[in-house]
């Protein structure tokens, strides 16, 4: 490269050079990158701690260049609460899947959010349990086939999929709740802004932020990566509308 060449896009410093274990086309990798880019741009890598869940992203600590804690299934918000309360000067983010956060961890996320823990919660919704091989999750859509609802999710049996961001926005305390998606470059660019703002709010000590990120799971949906992005667009977006459900500081930014 000659002297006036410039790098427009490269791996963020907060991300390691490790080839991830994620399946080809799984958008976990993109969400990791967006978090790492936010950490880099805010210059907080050296005082950031991530809390990894149990699920596909249990090995997240191999892909981030910052300290990490590994939480029991569903307990990341409680682990993060304990850490942040003793080290309010450090940046703490949790990274959880839908089974981890909504199913077993529903109590922990609701109370961490309601206490207004000054955390950045990244919540990946791919409508299925990935790591354990494609079982029904609380976010599995009606009629969606998984290994534990082989005839398609039957709402009479299991109730409706849970819209977590709307549920959380019923609480008074949380400061910033937004649902984004990473199934296309244009959506990824929006998602990056939201994730960055969530980290920014933590730096400004403003309160609890959660970003729900719609994500694909090609392997367990039984589709190619590109088909998965189409399936997400056609099936998940209608049920999980994107947008900001709560932003207590939106006016200030204008």
């Amino acid at each position: 490269m000659n002297n006036n060449s410039k790098t427009l896009f490269a791996r963020p410093e907060a991300m390691t050079d490790v080839v991830s274990h994620y399946c080809p086309g799984c958008t976990h990798g993109i969400i990791h990158r967006l978090a790492a880019e936010a950490i880099d741009s805010l210059g907080i890598r050296e005082k950031t701690v991530g809390v990894a869940p149990v699920g596909c992203s249990v090995l997240a600590y191999n892909y981030f260049n910052c300290d990490f804690l590994e939480a029991p299934h569903g307990r990341a918000p409680a682990i993060a609460t304990g850490f942040k309360r003793l080290r309010p000067d450090m940046m703490v983010f949790t990274y959880q899947g839908d089974g981890d956060l909504i199913s077993i961890g529903m109590s922990e996320i609701m109370h961490a959010a309601n206490r207004g823990e000054k955390l950045t919660a990244i919540f990946v919704n791919n409508a299925i349990y990935g790591m354990t091989g494609g079982q029904m999750a609380p976010t599995t859509l009606q009629g969606q086939i998984t290994s534990t609802c082989p005839a398609g999710r039957d709402l009479n049996e299991t109730g409706h999929p849970i819209r977590m961001t709307e549920l959380l926005s019923g609480l008074v305390t949380p400061m910033y709740l937004e649902r984004v998606s990473v199934h296309s470059p244009q959506h990824i660019i929006q998602a990056k802004k939201a994730i960055r703002k969530a980290f920014q709010y933590q730096m400004d000590n403003k309160g609890f932020s959660l970003i729900e990120v719609l994500s694909t799971c090609p392997t367990n949906w039984g589709q190619t990566p590109n088909e998965s992005t189409d399936w997400l667009e056609g099936n998940m977006l209608p049920y999980y509308p994107l947008g900001c459900f709560k932003d207590s500081f939106a006016e200030e930014d204008k």
Partner: peptide, 21 residues
């Protein structure tokens, strides 16, 4: 335009430019 790099789940793509961009 970097759209390829943005959508890559494995950060396998770097985008460079020479001269004006």
């Amino acid at each position: 335009c970097q759209l390829c790099a943005i959508t890559c789940p494995d950060v396998a793509i770097e985008v460079h430019t020479h001269g004006t961009s």
